[in-house]
């Protein structure tokens, strides 16, 4: 028995389903019944029940791409704020991909307080101690661009199914985006007007993340914005 419409906005404690269902993220089970744990959209597929949250802090998971800000240094690396209840650790060897003799090299030349870093989550232990790494090209210290912060819960919509929304924004504005799972996005572009347009699209997605047909509306808005002022 299902008690809500698919994609209906539900609130904590609201009964969603009763009987032989499996509960996934955003929901919990008591006896035979599955309830929502958060404000979000009920999402029922077959026997799977979940609630897509509309708010909430970012909790790091291994493999996530994140954008961090350096808030402190220690002898062998840096502490980064990753817009989460937990700070993350980045060791110098993970940043420069080689052994560094800490007695001979001054690591402050690599990163300073306030620097922005694109990184992947390498490890999260049971005490929520987080390690970062920068294994791919383009990861590491970021220069230029515009930093946008939105609710981490809305990031899946900015990416879209298989990155479809991201592709729309990039192709229509000619900008390049780095999207962190932790709610931070960097937009690079030569034309400041196009950068602003891309930011506007991101903010529109954040506002309307829970509505359907969003990709089409974003594409339309970007088309309109492009022709304006030409």
């Amino acid at each position: 028995m299902i008690y809500v419409q698919n994609r209906e906005i539900v609130v904590p404690g609201q009964l969603i389903a009763e009987g032989n269902y499996r509960h996934l993220e955003g929901s919990f089970r008591e006896g035979d019944r599955i309830y929502s744990a958060v404000v979000g959209l009920a999402d029922i597929k077959g026997d799977k029940v979940r609630v897509i949250p509309l708010q909430g802090r970012y909790v790091p998971r291994v493999g996530d791409l994140v954008i961090g800000v350096v808030i402190d240094t220690h002898s062998s690396g840096w502490i980064l704020d990753i817009n989460s209840p937990y700070t993350a650790n980045l060791f110098v060897s993970e940043l420069v991909h080689r052994k560094v003799d800490l007695n001979k090299e001054d690591i402050s030349k690599f990163l300073k307080i306030g620097d922005v870093v694109l990184a992947a989550v390498k490890e999260v232990d049971e005490y929520m101690r987080v390690l970062l790494e920068t294994p791919e090209r383009g990861m590491g210290r970021i220069e230029g661009g515009k930093l946008v912060e939105i609710s981490p819960a809305k990031i899946p919509r900015v990416l879209g199914r298989k990155g479809s929304m991201l592709k729309v924004i990039e192709s229509k504005t000619g900008c390049t985006l780095a999207v962190g799972q932790n709610g931070r996005i960097i937009v690079w572009g030569d034309d400041p007007r196009m950068v602003n347009l891309a930011v506007e699209a991101i903010l529109m997605i954040e506002r309307e993340a829970h509505t359907s047909g969003l990709t089409d509306r974003v594409a339309l808005m970007l088309e309109g914005g492009k022709s304006e002022g030409k």
Binding site: V69, I71, D81, I113, G114, V116, I142, G145, L147
Partner: peptide, 16 residues
């Protein structure tokens, strides 16, 4: 702590 990216962005804008 203000990120360097944000700082540069604001200063760049004010210049224009």
């Amino acid at each position: 702590i203000v990120s360097s990216v944000k700082r540069d962005y604001i200063i760049d804008l004010v210049k224009q």
